[in-house]
Design a protein around this nucleic acid. Structure first.
Length: 254
DNA sequence: ATGGCATGGTTTCCATGA
């Protein structure tokens, strides 16, 4: 079973790329973030025609998440029942016995911003949700745009980024807390190329200069980590015309 | 030097992203 995550930065703009990518990479599950699409305008027919079931929750302009799956999706939950939130940032479903949590964690903007405090509160709510899901399910996977680069090796220029949003100590502590709950960063289970990231700034030739961050992750519960045989970042779509600034992460489960 | 680019909506600028 292959599960993947991709922040598409507008599904309306990126739908052709999503369909192309799924043709090239027929994964079982693809979690999307930043669909930026209200539910009434979600491209259900196009995705179903590609052979995928889909569940989604969106809003106007911002945020929005979806799970695409080759297999039926059951027990769907939209948003975090333990954290009141105007934003559509979480969708959960069970696929082939795996509890798939698709999350778009807030950006935080800057340490001085109210949005940063919201991010930290949101992460505390996520911790509570994960604890609840772990009680109920053995196979839990959290896939998405975390907006956290866990370690300095996940940052192209750790000195320039030191203390900034996405790498600040409280954010990294929130990531560590998930690891302490039993989750494993699938990417770091395996030997990886150096300086491989999942996001690059659109500006100033960020991708060409490999000025990136690894902020999109797949965390696996203990039972799933045992089944994980590979995890890769696919940089190919970032090279396409009019790309998302993020690129997909894929984990393979036995 | 707080810019640079991309997206969607309130559309010819603004908010947001990371």
């Amino acid at each position: 079973m292959k599960i993947a995550t991709w922040n598409v930065n507008s599904l309306k703009v990126r739908l052709p790329q999503v369909l192309q990518w799924l043709t090239d990479n027929p994964v079982d599950v693809l979690c999307l973030q930043e669909t930026k699409t209200v539910d009434e305008k979600f491209p259900v027919a196009e995705i179903e025609a590609a052979g995928y079931h889909v569940v989604y929750t969106g809003q106007k302009t911002y945020n929005g998440v979806a799970i695409l799956s080759r297999h039926p999706i059951t027990d769907v939950v939209k948003n975090n029942p333990l954290f009141e939130d105007e934003h559509q940032r979480i969708i959960i479903g069970t696929i082939q016995g795996v509890r798939i949590i698709c999350a778009y964690i807030p950006n935080g903007q800057s340490l001085e911003s109210d949005k940063y405090q919201y991010k930290l509160r949101w992460l505390a709510g996520l911790h509570a949700l994960l604890a609840q899901e772990l009680k109920q399910h053995e196979n839990v996977a959290l896939l998405g745009d975390y907006n956290i680069a866990p370690e300095d090796r996940d940052v192209h220029d750790p000195v320039a980024w030191q203390g900034q949003v996405l790498v600040s100590e409280p954010e990294r502590a929130a990531f560590v807390r998930m690891q302490e709950m039993g989750f494993t960063d699938a990417f770091r289970m395996f030997e990886q190329p150096e300086k491989l990231y999942s996001w690059w700034d659109y500006r100033q030739m960020g991708f060409r200069l490999n000025r990136g961050l690894r902020i999109d992750h797949i965390l696996l519960s203990p039972a799933l980590a045992k089944r994980c045989t590979a995890c890769v970042i696919d940089k190919v779509p970032r090279k396409w015309e009019q790309p998302s600034d993020h690129t997909p992460v894929i984990a393979t489960l036995d």
